[in-house]
Amino acid sequence: MVGVPNVTRTDAVAALRNPLAFISERWTPAPRTVQRAALSALVMSVVIVVTGGAVRLTGSGLGCPTWPKCTADSLTATSAMGFHGAIEFGNRMLTYVLCAAVGWAIIAARSEKPRRAGLTRLGWAQFWLVMSNAVLGGIVVLVGLNPYTVAAHFLLASALIAVAALMWQRTREGDGEPRPLVGKPVQQLVWFLVLASSLLIAVGTVVTGAGPHAGDSSEVERMPLDWETVAKLHAVLAWIVVTLTFALWFILKAVDAPRGPLNRTRELFLVLLAQGVIGYVQYFTNLPEVLVGLHMLGSALVWIWVLLVLLALRERPAATAGLPGPVAEAAVRSNA
């Protein structure tokens, strides 16, 4: 018979006072576990964007007409609210799944040995972004899907994706001083690529705010802009991003850059091509909902790969200073 470990009153008090420290003292996750936890948070940050798009594209944005309850009298959607209520409430419930994924990432990062405070901070940054966007999502409902708040909601979700991607990358690196793998001109080109991609996403929210998919079947305010003009500006920015990516790939090949930056740039170029095809097809087919949803997924993937290109420009070995000999050797081997 296996004995059950005794939990003392002191342990119970410690767990209540600081549950993260309590877990960290008793559990050391493998590096792969920490990486998977960070990846799960990144995946869920993309899923919540796509499902949020599904809410808008099905006209379910006001399926739950109030917040934080679904209706004035019910916390959940009721059968009388039909399809739209179920879609909107389901998306709200996915926020809890996202919180669970971010929580797992925080716990895994906090429990890793030796402790990496930077990873834990990135996990908490995701948590506060999720909480902020949940409140902003409630405001979006309360103001009747005002397009400016909808745009801010998407941009905050893009910030969450950025932090989640950074945390996932950092779980696969050490904490040593970053060493650049390319020269300063290439780094500057990539920063121009990041800036152009940020503008592309921002203008994309304006296209959405001025476009026909308002998010609800009722009359919803749109941005007072000519939709086709803004869409053409969005396309120009997309071509700038594609051109910068191709130029970067050409330069990296010319200078015989390491495989990491070259591979990430090639992958980004392929993602951009797929996103461009979807964008043009949806434009010339009057914005079918399925293609618009795929375009939103593509937007998240483009943003992730742009950031991965930026992060691939340097390497960070394990920080071995001050560690005992065997620990230092193990840290070097794990990052080899």
Rank of each mutant, 00 (worst) to 15 (best):
V49W: 01
S40P: 00
A157L: 09
L313A: 07
G325F: 15
D256N: 07
C99S: 13
T71E: 07
L145T: 12
R116I: 08
I139S: 05
V241Q: 01
T8V: 02
L233P: 02
E329T: 15
T66V: 14
T243I: 12
V203I: 15
A21G: 05
G82L: 00
V97P: 02
V182F: 06
P31E: 00
S197F: 06
V43H: 03
I240S: 04
Y280S: 05
A274Y: 00
E88A: 11
A164F: 14
E173A: 14
G85F: 01
I278W: 07
F89Y: 15
Q187C: 10
V306C: 15
K113D: 00
S217G: 12
W239V: 06
P288D: 09
P326V: 02
D11R: 11
L262D: 05
A238E: 07
P147Q: 05
G215F: 00
W168Q: 12
W128R: 01
T58M: 03
N286Q: 11
L307Y: 01
T245C: 10
P185W: 04
G183Q: 01
F83M: 06
A100G: 14
P317H: 12
A117P: 05
V242P: 01
V140W: 00
T95H: 02
L189N: 11
L181V: 04
I240F: 11
M93L: 15
V309F: 12
V230G: 06
T265Q: 11
R56H: 13
A12C: 03
V55D: 05
E329G: 05
P29S: 08
S45G: 15
V306R: 03
V34Y: 04
T8I: 02
P29V: 11
V306P: 09
C64H: 05
L291N: 05
L233F: 12
G276F: 10
V220L: 10
L156E: 04
V203M: 08
T149A: 13
Q169F: 09
L200V: 07
P29R: 08
S79W: 05
L273D: 03
G53S: 02
G183I: 02
V135S: 00
T28K: 13
S60Y: 02
V4A: 09
H84T: 11
I48A: 03
A312L: 08
T33M: 11
L193V: 01
V47P: 03
A105Y: 08
G3D: 09
E173K: 02
L195N: 00
R170D: 12
M131Y: 06
R170K: 15
A210Y: 00
H84N: 13
L145P: 13
A108G: 07
V143D: 13
V55S: 06
M1Y: 12
T120I: 06
L273M: 14
F83W: 12
S79N: 09
W239C: 05
N18T: 04
L252Q: 05
L166Y: 14
D11A: 13
F83R: 09
L75N: 04
A238Q: 06
E267K: 11
G82W: 00
G298R: 00
W191P: 00
R115T: 11
K253L: 15
R56G: 10
A134T: 15
I23L: 14
F246C: 04
H84R: 10
A164C: 10
K232E: 06
A100W: 01
L156S: 04
V141H: 05
D11P: 07
V7M: 11
L294D: 01
R9E: 11
L142C: 02
A235D: 04
L272K: 05
A321S: 09
V163N: 10
W168Y: 15
R314Y: 10
V140E: 03
L181A: 02
